[in-house]
Computed example of a mutant assay.
Amino acid sequence: MTATLHFHADPGEFLDAAGNHLAADPVLNTVVASVAHRMAARRADGIALPEDDWWLVVRDASGAVVGAGMRTAPFLLPMPAEAAVALARTWHERGEMVSAVNGALPAARYCAAEVARLGGGRVEVAQHTRLHELDTLVPPTPAPGALAVAGADDVDLVTAWFDAFMADADEQAGRPRGASAHATPERGELLRWIRSGRIWFWTDGAGRPVHLTAANAPAFGVARVGPVYTPPEHRGRGWAGNAVAEVSRGLRAEGVRVCLFTDQANPASNRLYARLGFRPVVDMANLVVVP
């Protein structure tokens, strides 16, 4: 094999090794880059990271970085097919139990297929996603209310709406609630996110929260918006479009590029973001290996 796999337990060491590669296409690499930076900051603050997490750098025969990935949950960026297959074989040799692979196609598909071949089972698509980048922001029809930054006292509502977003997203896409197995961040992580000033409510004319939009801190000049959630009783009133537009405008004012993911099975959200000026970048998938 001409490609070699290099594993790092320290996200800071991973960023030192792969930073230039991630920065060369920071939109495509947004998930791995933002999670690595967040975990490196937590480690620097003395917060213990899960012992089984790792960060992957793929190098070609010349030593150049040609791919990357992470296991907080397995997420792969583009890499040679042989590297994706070798990663699955390495998991198998280590005895690591992997039941899902998320990330860029076709690398994620090659990896999941080899996991299934080695361990038995078959690969199914849990979710097709699409990464978009904001081009020219097209303001939506104004809706009553205003954007407000969430505070620490709002953590219970933020938690409830994060939980609901995960379940409702499946339902809106025609899947059973909870089928995508996305986990809400634990309370401490949500509080850190809130205190960073990156979770917002849209409040109605009476000042009541009716919608939530969040965004990751920028990594290599790119900020990723999400989750974006409106409770069912408040939908259809323009809250989401106005909130995402305002958040995106603010991020642009910081000098960063703005991107977000959509579920390809949810046409309503895809239409909304297209109207706001988001343009497709790459398709990804969450693949599960079932017995």
Rank of each mutant, 00 (worst) to 15 (best):
H211T: 13
H37T: 12
A148R: 11
V158A: 10
G174N: 08
R252E: 10
V244L: 12
E254L: 15
H234R: 08
F261P: 00
P139L: 03
E51H: 12
V282C: 07
P231W: 03
L77K: 09
R257L: 02
M97T: 15
R249F: 01
V281H: 00
E114N: 10
A108Y: 05
A152N: 04
R117H: 15
T72R: 12
H92W: 14
A68R: 03
P185T: 11
L287S: 04
T203A: 06
L260F: 02
V228M: 08
P280T: 11
A152W: 02
V101I: 15
A265Q: 11
E171N: 12
A44G: 08
A84L: 14
V247W: 00
G197L: 09
G255L: 05
V290F: 07
A84E: 11
A61Y: 05
L251Q: 03
A84C: 14
H234W: 07
Y110E: 14
R237D: 06
S269C: 09
P50M: 09
G46P: 02
A160G: 07
L28P: 01
G19C: 03
Y273A: 05
W54M: 10
N102P: 00
V125Q: 03
A223I: 09
L5G: 08
N266I: 02
G46T: 03
A23I: 05
F75D: 06
E124K: 05
R198K: 06
G255A: 06
P176W: 14
D52M: 04
A179W: 03
P11C: 09
G174E: 10
A104L: 06
A73W: 15
N266V: 08
G103N: 09
A36H: 06
M97N: 14
D156G: 06
W200M: 08
G241V: 04
E82S: 15
I47Q: 09
A3S: 14
A33F: 04
R71S: 13
A268E: 13
A61P: 06
W161L: 04
A113E: 15
S248V: 07
F165E: 06
R177T: 09
R224C: 12
R279S: 02
G205F: 00
S248Y: 04
C259H: 01
T230E: 05
G226F: 05
E186H: 14
D283C: 07
Y273K: 02
D53P: 01
M97C: 13
T129C: 08
V258N: 05
A146C: 05
F14H: 04
W55N: 03
S34Q: 09
G46A: 01
P267R: 10
V35D: 12
H37N: 08
T2Q: 13
A17G: 00
D170C: 11
L56I: 06
D45I: 00
G241N: 02
P232G: 10
R175I: 02
G145V: 00
G103P: 05
L137I: 07
D25K: 10
E13Q: 15
A36N: 02
L134Q: 00
A148V: 11
A240F: 02
N286Y: 14
R89T: 12
P227F: 06
H92A: 15
M79F: 11
E171F: 14
V66T: 13
L49H: 00
N270A: 14
V66Y: 01
A240D: 01
R187D: 07
E93M: 13
A18R: 06
G119F: 07
V85W: 12
A143K: 01
